[in-house]
Design a protein around this nucleic acid. Sequence first.
DNA 1: CTGTTAGCGCGTTCAG
DNA 2: CTGAACGCGCTAACAG
Lengths: 331, 331
Amino acid sequence: MIKRDKGVTISQVAAEAGVARSSVSRAFRHPDMLLPETVERIMKAAQALGYVPNHTARALSTGRHGNIALVVPDIANPFFPPLIAATQLEADRSDFCVFLGNTEEKPAQEDKLLGRFAGQVEGLVLASPRLSDERILAHAAQRPLVLINRDIKGIPRVLIDSGSGVRQAAEHLAELGHRKIVYVNGPHTSWSNRERRSALRSAARKLGLEIVALPPIVPTYQSGHRTVDAILETGATAAIAFDDITAQGILAGLAEYNVAVPERFSLIGCDDVLGAVTYPALTSVSNRSAEAGRLAVTLLMEALQSGSIREARYVLETHLVVRNTTGPAPA
Amino acid sequence: MIKRDKGVTISQVAAEAGVARSSVSRAFRHPDMLLPETVERIMKAAQALGYVPNHTARALSTGRHGNIALVVPDIANPFFPPLIAATQLEADRSDFCVFLGNTEEKPAQEDKLLGRFAGQVEGLVLASPRLSDERILAHAAQRPLVLINRDIKGIPRVLIDSGSGVRQAAEHLAELGHRKIVYVNGPHTSWSNRERRSALRSAARKLGLEIVALPPIVPTYQSGHRTVDAILETGATAAIAFDDITAQGILAGLAEYNVAVPERFSLIGCDDVLGAVTYPALTSVSNRSAEAGRLAVTLLMEALQSGSIREARYVLETHLVVRNTTGPAPA
DNA sequence: CTGTTAGCGCGTTCAG
DNA sequence: CTGAACGCGCTAACAG
C-alpha cells in the first residue's frame, strides 16, 4: 500500500495545533462550535502544514462527494459547449465539480457512462439523451437525475421548445409562397427531432403546406451534405433541417449544384449555433441551451438539498431568427 | 448521518455467498487469486443483490480514484471540443473518468479549479493555460500534470507547433506580393500566441516583410471585429490573426467597410476550426488538437503507471491550408 | 486458496 | 466547548 500522496492529514494538523482531530474537523465544518481563538490556532497550523481536506475521505464518511455529472451526445456539436459552460458555472456556485461524458450519439456509450459516473456523483444531468426511456428511468432510480430535451414523466426535465420556433418557420415560408417543404430528420431517438417534426406537421396542416420528411440521420455536416440529392429530388422549394450543422452541409451541397439560395431554394436550420457565419447567413430557430444547462443544475441542486425529487417540467420557448437563406418561392 | 444510498455493500455480498469480505473484494480485483468456482458463486450473489463497488471507498483505501481532470480556457472556442472529446475517449480506454474545467480565460479561475480538482484526481491535463509558470509548477508538484500548448521545462508537454504553419503563411503572403502584414495578437499569457508571433517575426525578417503587431486581445468574434479599424489604419495589405474566431470577426468587419477579400485585403487565421464555413472560405493554419489531447492522456497514463514523471516534450507540426481569403497584393 | 485484521482520512456521536 | 471512539466501504498485509 504505497502512497506518494504528501497527504497532510487532519491528525498532523491536530498535533501541530495541540488539539484533538475532531476539533480540526469542526474548525472547517462547524467553526461556530469552537472558540474563535481555537479556530484561529487550528487554521494557522493548517496553513503552515499546507493541509487540504481530503475530498475522498469526506465523501466516504458523509456520502456526499460534491460532484455531479453531465452527459451529452456530442461535444463537437456547437449546441452543447454553451450548455456545458453554463452547467459548470452554475455547479461551481454551489461548489460542485462536474464530470463530463461524451457519448458520440451512441446509446450504449451513454448507458455505460451513466453507470460509471453513478458511483461517484450525487446527481446527474443528462442532455439530449439517445437512450431508451426504460434505461433512463433505471438510472434515475439510482441517483437524482435531471433531463434536458427529453420528456419523461416523473423525471425533472428542462425542455427547449423548438416547436414554437419551427411553427414560426413554417409560417414564414408559407408567407413567402412556398407550398412544398422538406423536413430533414435528425436522430430518431431524439426528442427534439420528434418535437420539430410534429410541430412542422401540424403547422403545415393549418397552413395548407405539403411536408416531405427525409429519413433520420446523425446530424453532421457530412450527413447534411449527403442528403442534398434526396432533397432536390422531392421538387420542394424549401427545407427545414433538424439543426444548423446539418443545414450547413446542405447549404454547401446546394452551392455545389449551383442552386442559388435563397433565390431558387430556401433553407432554415435549428439551434442557431452558427450565428451569421454561413454564406448566405442562415435563417434558424433560436436555442436557449445555456439557460437550459443553468436551469437543470438549479433543479438538481434543489433535489439534492431537499433530498426528494419533485415533479418538474420547464419549457423554454424559441423563435425564428430570419437571416438570408429564406426568400420568396421561385415562380 | 442520513444516507439514502441503497448501498449494497461488500459485506452483504459476503454473507450471501458465505465467504469473507476480502474474498468478495478479490473476486472483483484479483479473480485469479480465487478458485473459479468461488468467484462464480460470489459474482452470482453480487448480481442477485445488485451490488456495485463503491468507487469512493476504494479510492480512500487505494489512493487511486480512477479520475483525471482536464482544464481548458474556453469550451466555446471550437479549438477545444475535439481536444476534449479525444481526451475523454483516450481516458476511457484506461477506464478513467474525466472532470472538465472551464476557466473562461481567467488565470484565477484556472488556479481555483486546479486546486479543487487536485483532491479527487490522479492526474491533470492542462490545455492552453493562462496561469503563471510558478503556479503551474506548484500544481505539478502536487499531482502528475501534463501540459498542452505550454512549454515549461520539467513538465511533460504536448506542443502544437503553429510556428511551422505560420512560417508557411508568411511565405504564402510574400509570394503573393504582400510587403506589410498585421499580426493580431491573442492573449499575452498564451504560449501559442508567443510562438505564432515570433515565428512570424523571424519569417518576416528572412522574407523582408514588415510586421505590425496589434495589442493583445481575448480571442473572440467581437474582439476581432473591434480590431478592424486598427488593422486598416496600419495600411497593411494582409493580416494574420491569432486564431480563426478572431479572423472571423475581422472578416465580418472588413465586409462592413466594403473591403473586398481577398482582392483588397488578405486574411489568414489559425487553428482551422471553421472549415470552409466562412465566406470567403478562410485560409488558415491547421490544428492538431485531437491528437494533442489523446497524446497528453497517453503521457499522463504512463506517468501514473510508472509512478514517475519523465521529461517529455512532444511537438506536433502544422501547415497552411490555403482557401479563399488570400490573394495577390493590391497594386 | 481463503479468512482475519488493520487501517485509508474524516465526520460525528457520546461522554466529559 | 473539547477529546475519545466508532464507522463509512473497501483493500492489502498477514496468517492459516
